[in-house]
């Protein structure tokens, strides 16, 4: 019996030492080979043609820009209550950067950052500057909204525009208000109807909002977050009518209804954020800063739908390009907070 106990104890000690050695070797190897391990936690899926896909695509683009320097994993469908276990697993697996993609992960990220000071945590949207191992990012999406507003007001024949918002907060609030300002810059008397679904993922309700607005006379609509796909789909129910959509994700342009109805779209490009994040971690800067995303720092990309080129002329393209140049030279110049929906 004693022999068995002794043998068991020896095995336990041996295996523990082996595992410990393996862990340190892994750490040493990580420092040597210069690979930074990045983990992404999202509440939806990485192919949602919206919020989550933009970040996923950004990380993949960053991997291409920094070949062999980024190792990447992701966890989808993570509610904030479930995300903690995934994040802890990533910490245990030696990940250097853990991104909770959404403001709903803020509390979790701050708690984890306190618990694991050697790991870099990131979340957004948030303009707050967090602890020294936390990075936040804030898309200044009033710029993309402004462009969408210019396009919508220019192509509108009835001068009544619609906004299908998820909630009146975060980057969605900035986008929607930027849209209003952009539209008013072209046609000061244009009418803008704004309605919110109260959800980022209720496609059906977004479709209902769009139908309601179209029935009320709107001829150009926009919207942000993944729920906006429901609204885009609703515009496709009017294939032969002058009902158009301006998107907030370039992936929408590739969809069948996007080809039919989406005049132009802008996207968040997270690649510069990820590249700077990885470079900072390599240089020993774990956090304590906020990355604003705008046209000036390459945080946004924009594209027209060439299939609908008859709808917009070169004048509109020139106007949009001029506005993008203006944003590059003068970032953070759209006073989105000045918009009061009740005054529209």
């Amino acid at each position: 019996m004693k022999k068995i106990v002794a043998l068991s104890l020896m095995l336990v000690v041996l295996s523990a030492s082996l595992f410990a050695q393996g862990g340190s070797e892994e750490s040493a190897a990580k420092e040597d080979d210069g690979v930074v391990k990045v983990a992404l936690i999202v509440e939806n899926t990485i192919d949602d043609k919206g919020w989550c896909q933009a970040m996923h695509d950004g990380i993949l683009a960053a991997q291409e820009r920094m070949p062999g320097e980024i190792e990447y994993s992701y966890s989808e469908k993570m509610k904030p209550v479930d995300a903690g276990s995934a994040a802890r697993q990533y910490v245990a697996d030696g990940y250097d950067i853990i991104i909770g993609h959404g403001a709903q992960y803020k509390n979790l990220i701050l708690e984890m950052a306190d618990e694991y000071p050697d790991v870099t945590f990131a979340f957004g949207t948030s303009a707050e500057v967090g602890p020294e191992n936390v990075v936040t990012y804030m898309p200044e999406s009033e710029e993309t909204g402004y462009l969408s507003g210019i396009i919508a007001a220019t192509i509108s024949k009835v001068d009544v525009l619609g906004v299908v918002g998820p909630v009146d907060g975060g980057d969605a609030a900035r986008y929607n208000r930027g849209f209003v300002l952009g539209a008013k810059s072209v046609k000061p008397d244009v009418e803008v109807m704004v309605a919110h679904t109260g959800s980022f993922s209720d496609y059906i309700k977004a479709g209902e909002v769009a139908q309601s607005q179209i029935k009320a006379g709107v001829d150009v609509l926009t919207g942000s977050s993944q729920q906006a796909l429901g609204a885009l789909r609703a515009t496709a129910d009017y294939p032969d009518e002058d009902i158009w959509w301006v998107g907030q994700d370039l992936a929408q342009l590739k969809m069948a209804e996007g080809q039919l109805k989406c005049v132009a779209a802008s996207s968040y490009d997270y690649a510069p954020v990820i590249v700077s994040l990885v470079e900072n971690v390599k240089n020993g800067v774990k956090g304590g800063y906020c990355v604003p995303m705008n046209f000036a720092n390459g945080g946004f990309i924009f594209g027209f739908n060439e299939a609908l080129s008859d709808l917009y002329g070169s004048d509109l393209e020139d106007a949009i390009n001029a506005q993008i140049s203006e944003f590059v030279n003068n970032p953070n110049s759209v006073d989105w907070k000045s918009v009061d929906y009740s005054q529209l």
Partner: peptide, 21 residues
């Protein structure tokens, strides 16, 4: 009621949309 609240939201009435939803 759902259709009504969506239509009312679009009218820009100064009323918190959360209550409309």
């Amino acid at each position: 009621a759902q259709s009504f609240q969506l239509a009312v939201q679009g009218q820009g009435i100064n009323f918190p949309y959360e209550f409309a939803v």
